[in-house]
């Protein structure tokens, strides 16, 4: 799981172009949206693309993403249970 969390942090930094942020700056349990990293609705759409492209997980309803993208740890947990790639 630790390995997946680190991989995921790097992928988030890359797809969201988070200049100046390093994996260790992201708290795996901190909220990604609103507070914490302060991501918004467009970032959520980018994360949906990331989930499908990299892990083969389709998220049909963006509202579903709210729980999945609560934190990096939550994402990793969801991925480990649902990945098809």
């Amino acid at each position: 799981m630790e390995e997946l969390i680190l991989k995921l942090k790097n992928e988030i930094i890359e797809v969201l172009n988070l200049e100046d942020i390093k994996p260790e700056d992201i708290d795996a349990n901190a909220p990604l949206f609103g507070e914490g990293l302060g991501l918004d609705s467009i970032d959520a759409l980018e994360l949906i693309v990331l989930m499908e492209k990299t892990y083969g997980i389709k998220i049909k309803d963006p509202n579903e993403g709210k729980d999945i993208f609560k934190s990096v740890a939550a994402m990793a947990d969801y991925i480990s249970k649902h990945r098809t790639k």
């Binding site: 172009n17 467009i42 759409l45 980018e46 693309v49 499908e52 492209k53």
Partner: peptide, 9 residues
């Protein structure tokens, strides 16, 4: 498929 919204915007 799987096109990036950031680029489209």
């Amino acid at each position: 498929y799987l096109l990036k919204p950031t680029h489209f915007m």
